[in-house]
Design a protein around this nucleic acid. Structure first.
Lengths: 350, 350
DNA sequence: GTGAAAGCGCTAACAA
DNA sequence: TTGTTAGCGCTTTCAC
């Protein structure tokens, strides 16, 4: 690829019109698959398009259309740092793309509550909303509500936790099975040869992301670290109080816990418990989501590793995908893959 | 943030012109800081802009301007997978933004050769090129060439390895000191209590990225893992043949090497050496850059961890930054920060 | 079925 | 120093 190539200049609909010997309006009809064009004319135009290698200028098209995008995020209503971060990213991006004719809003629905979620989805105003990003549990009622939404022409993406049984257009989030596998690998390698029990702290088995992480975690633990004994999941419902209450009993029942996998949004409860229980030999801890609390825990060597997904990336990606769907443009899959970030003390971003 | 907000509709220059009681052309002059407007008029217009909260529609502006962007990447000419990947990303992105009036090209210059690099920079056609991304060593001659380029109005970003002494507009790449620190932390944690020597394989001490990684690596090793003995760097100049030749002697001289940090582009030589030397007790290996070879090495448990930077992100970020500079638009720093990716067997992307 | 013409928000001649 | 006007590439009435 030599530097100093011929200057760029792409064909426009004018060129197509000239070559196909039709008017601009007809080219536009063909481009947008609008009805009322004779078959032969369609062919002529398509031939010209192919011949000239025409690609539509999306910016100009949107300008002419005066199109605006209205996207809604549906998030769980419980309070934790991951959700606040997601919320902040939505507001921030919403501000900065207001001037690209794109409007972002969000609603909150009770966590782990499929009925409330389905109601929220049903309440979407399909006349004005172009796309919805949903972070919530996968159940039949949710699936049905999504199907209804899609049938009205609204783009639906699942966020953070997939809803594969539904007709969602796309999933935006990490591969949670792989995330669980990664947690297991870190846990096993950090523990080394020692033997003992591993506690898995989860949120709810209704949450597909939590479930998948556990699956991945178990698979690698069983295969690569059979000398470690992984206990049944402790369901903390992402509630700090509940978690801080449950932990002492569990630890008392299982004296030889040498590793803890905090696989959901239970970091606050876990850290509160650690703070109350000083002098206890510190287990290896692998947690999820880089936030203020988990950053401090990494700094203080309370957490050994944090597996994370970039909330900024999640939101930007969801918006790009909903826009692309609305414009019937292809999705750049490589750019939209959400990575499983691994953070240790030393590679935390500033 | 409630869903179902007032529909968006942003003020345009027409609104400004009306409120400020001037013509479109005058608004345009003020917006673009063009000369020939009376001070009082400028004030009037700016007051209207502030009052209406006007933000220019960049897409419409670029359409009207017919502006094209011509960006050149300068890369080292040696062959390795990281560079091929960078090259592929440039070609790929170049294809997909050809239709956004943006042209990407690249040139290759001899690796670790400041004179050749300075010459390549001097050879840039400043009349047609809007921005240059440079991946190469930092020396006085390079610094001077960059200064000259910038003085002609060309945007300059340093890529992968920073050139902070120069007047580059921006650095696109990871914090290499932190990358080295991360490598050390992984190495130390994976080795555990055992004692022994650590070999650091580097490319060239002329390369700022290589140098910084070593600095970060040593800092954490000394502080957190004093029982490990880090040897002087083996400079492999990223040359597989040279590396495969140097390694046997080094290993013979130091029988107790239990860890290897492959901090530059020497994976191929290292793996070739491993292949030739079967039956040797495998050291813990931390390497850089996720590529075909390093992926296989992770899969086969030959490498324990790979620290990486996403080449797609590097290229997209460099282009976004060069565009923003050209348009005098602000840079979204959060989005442009290149992360230090940590890959283990289980979190490799597919 | 097809085409002519106006206009999206902005820029850039060219006048005045 | 300021204003008028013709586009950029595309969409969208409204005629024919």
């Amino acid at each position: 690829m030599k530097h100093g190539q011929p200057p760029l200049s792409n064909p426009t609909i004018n060129d197509i019109a000239r070559v196909a010997e039709v008017s601009l309006a007809t080219v536009d009809r063909v481009l947008n698959a609008r009805p009322g064009v004779r078959e032969a004319t369609v062919k002529k135009v398509n031939r010209a398009i192919a011949e000239l290698g025409y690609v539509r200028d999306a910016a100009a098209a949107n300008l002419a259309r005066g199109r605006t995008y209205n996207f809604v995020f549906i998030l769980p209503s419980n309070k934790n740092e991951f959700l606040s971060s997601l919320e902040a990213q939505i507001e921030h991006l919403g501000q900065s793309i207001r001037h690209e004719r794109t409007q972002l809003t969000y609603v909150r629905v009770a966590a782990f509550d499929p009925v409330a979620l389905a109601e929220a989805i049903d309440a979407i105003d399909t006349a004005t909303v172009d796309g919805v990003a949903i972070f919530g549990p996968e159940t039949p009622s949710v699936r049905d509500s999504i199907a209804l939404l899609r049938s009205q022409g609204v783009t639906v993406v699942s966020l953070v936790a997939d809803i594969p049984s539904s007709e969602r257009d796309h999933y935006v989030g990490v591969d949670n099975i792989a995330a669980g596998r990664t947690a297991a690998q870190l846990m096993g390698k950090f523990i080394g040869q020692r033997e003992g029990k591993i506690l898995v702290l989860t949120g709810s088995m209704l949450a597909r992301d939590h479930l998948e992480r556990r699956l991945g975690f178990d698979a690698v633990m069983t295969r690569d670290f059979p000398h470690l004994d992984v206990l049944a999941s402790l369901e903390g419902r992402d509630d700090p109080d509940l978690i801080a209450r449950l932990l002492p009993d569990t630890l008392a029942d299982n004296p030889n816990i040498i590793g803890i996998y905090s696989s959901a949004a239970g970091n606050e409860g876990l850290l509160r418990f650690f703070a109350s229980r000083t002098g206890m030999p510190r287990p290896v801890v692998v947690a999820h989501e880089l936030t203020q609390l988990s950053r401090e825990a990494l700094s203080n060597d309370v957490f050994d590793a944090v597996i994370s997904q970039d909330t900024g990336h999640l939101v930007r990606s969801a918006v790009r995908i909903m826009r692309a769907k609305r414009d019937r443009l292809p999705i750049q899959t490589a750019q939209e893959r959400i990575r499983i970030d691994v953070y240790l003390k030393e590679n935390m971003p500033p």
